[in-house]
C-alpha cells in the first residue's frame, strides 16, 4: 500500500515536473493539438460504430477549430459530424450541420458537402432536392474526381427511387468499375447492393441474387449489422420473386440480426415480410 502510494506520488511529481518542459513537446499550439485530438478520437469512434460519441467529438473539434479561425479544419469536422448524424439515421440533423458548414464557407458548398446533402435528402425521400444536389455535384466532378464512384452510387439511388431501374443499374455498374482495385469496401458493398436492387426492380431477379450475396459477403466482413440485415431482407425479396426456397429463412436471418443489434425498425420490416410470406413467428419468451 505504501509502495503504491509512493509510486502514484512519484508519477504525479514526474508529470508536474515535466509540465513546463516545452522543449520536448511537439510544435503544435495547445488548442490546435486539442482540436486534432478531438477529431482523431471522433474518427476512431466513428470507425467503431459509436456514432453518438463520434458526433460529440467532431462537434467539439469543429468548435475548437472555429475558435482559432481554422476554417478548413472547422468545415472538415462539420462534414464528419454530418456523416455521423447520417449514420445514426438523423438525416434532418445532418442537413442542419451541412447548412452551417455552407454558411462558414465563402466559396459555396464543396463536392463532399453536396454528396452528403444528397445522401440526407435521399434518406428523407426528398428526391427532387436530392436530384438538384446531385446535379450540382456533377458540375463539380466533371472529370475523374476522387468522389466519382460515390456520385454514381448516389445517382443510382436517386434513379432507383424514381423507378428508373436501367439508369440505376448503369450508375451502379459504373461505380463498381471505378471502385475496382481500390480499398473502398463499403462503397463496393453499396454498389453490389444497388446492382442487386436495380436488377430486381428491372425484372432480372436471377441476376440480382449473386449481387446481393456479394453485398452481404462484404458487409459481413465489415461487420455492419444494419447493412447485413438489409441485405438479408433484399435476398429474401429476391428469393420470393424468383420463387426459390429459402425466402423465409432469409427474412428470419434479417430478423435475428436486427433483434441482436437492437434495430427495431428493421426487425419490424422483417416481421412484416415474414407475415406477408405467411410465416408464423414463434412466440418469444419475455
Amino acid at each position: 500500500m505504501r509502495a503504491k502510494t509512493l509510486l502514484i506520488a512519484t508519477l504525479i511529481l514526474a508529470g508536474c515536473a515535466a509540465a513546463p518542459n516545452s522543449a520536448t513537446s511537439p510544435a503544435e499550439p495547445p488548442r490546435l493539438k486539442a482540436a486534432l485530438e478531438a477529431e482523431s478520437d471522433g474518427a476512431k469512434r466513428y470507425g467503431r460504430g459509436d456514432y453518438a460519441a463520434a458526433v460529440r467529438r467532431f462537434d467539439e473539434a469543429a468548435r475548437i477549430y472555429a475558435s482559432i479561425d481554422d476554417m478548413p479544419g472547422a468545415a472538415r469536422n462539420r462534414l464528419h459530424l454530418a456523416r455521423s448524424e447520417l449514420a445514426q439515421g438523423r438525416a434532418e440533423a445532418a442537413l442542419l450541420v451541412l447548412e452551417s458548414a455552407d454558411r462558414g464557407s465563402d466559396a459555396g458548398p464543396t463536392l463532399d458537402t453536396l454528396l452528403l446533402r444528397a445522401q440526407a435528402q435521399l434518406a428523407l425521400d426528398r428526391h427532387a432536392a436530392a436530384q438538384q444536389s446531385l446535379a450540382a455535384a456533377s458540375g463539380q466532378c466533371a472529370g475523374a474526381c476522387p468522389q466519382a464512384a460515390s456520385l454514381h452510387l448516389l445517382q443510382a439511388r436517386a434513379a432507383l427511387a424514381a423507378n428508373l431501374a436501367a439508369d440505376a443499374l448503369a450508375h451502379a455498374e459504373a461505380a463498381l468499375k471505378l471502385l475496382q482495385g481500390k480499398d473502398e469496401a463499403a462503397e463496393t458493398g453499396n454498389a453490389w447492393r444497388l446492382i442487386a436492387a436495380a436488377r430486381l426492380a428491372g425484372g432480372d431477379a436471377g441476376g440480382a441474387l449473386p449481387a446481393a450475396n456479394a453485398a452481404l459477403e462484404i458487409d459481413r466482413q465489415l461487420a455492419l449489422p444494419e447493412k447485413i440485415a438489409r441485405d438479408w431482407l433484399l435476398i429474401g425479396d429476391i428469393r420470393r420473386k424468383v420463387g426459390a426456397g429459402g425466402t423465409a429463412a432469409a427474412y428470419r436471418r434479417a430478423l435475428d440480426v436486427a433483434n441482436a443489434a437492437g434495430l427495431a425498425d428493421l426487425a419490424r420490416q422483417a416481421k412484416e415480410a415474414l407475415a406477408a410470406n405467411n410465416e408464423v413467428l414463434p412466440e418469444r419468451k419475455p
Partner: peptide, 15 residues
Amino acid sequence: ARLKMDSDLRGEAGR
C-alpha cells in the same frame, strides 16, 4: 482525420 466515403451509411438503398 479522413473518413472513408460511404454513400449509403445504413444500407437503405437495397430495399
